[in-house]
């Protein structure tokens, strides 16, 4: 086990979601799906997990009659992700 790694970021999909949200504010579900080339169910469960940890926040709004859900990284999530990345880099640069 590498020291400092966050077990919540072990899945590649969660890494992908966080990567997108680190450099973009409020990304909607479909854009996220397209960016990560994923299917609905796959992405939804991982997003739920990240939300449960309060790493991302969710905003629901209506565009016309269609509901649109967008996601944003929280301060907690950004810090956790940064720590995870630096732990990874430290491990690889050993």
């Amino acid at each position: 086990m590498i020291q400092g790694l966050n077990k919540h970021f072990e899945s590649r999909i969660r890494l992908g979601v966080m990567s997108v949200l680190m450099v973009n504010d409020w990304v909607d579900f479909n854009t996220m799906k397209e960016l990560l080339s994923l299917t609905d169910g796959n992405l939804a469960s991982h997003i739920k997990a990240l939300e449960k940890n309060e790493y991302i926040e969710i905003r629901k709004a209506f565009v016309g009659k269609k509901p649109k859900t967008t996601y944003n990284a929280t301060k907690l999530g950004r810090t956790a992700f940064k720590n995870h990345l630096s732990a990874l880099e430290k491990f690889l640069n050993r």
Binding site: R12, G16, S19, V20, M22, V27, L35, L88, E89
Partner: peptide, 11 residues
């Protein structure tokens, strides 16, 4: 790590 960089760039 490489994939993370790619995703950040692509998005």
């Amino acid at each position: 790590l490489n994939e993370i960089k790619q995703i950040m760039n692509r998005s």
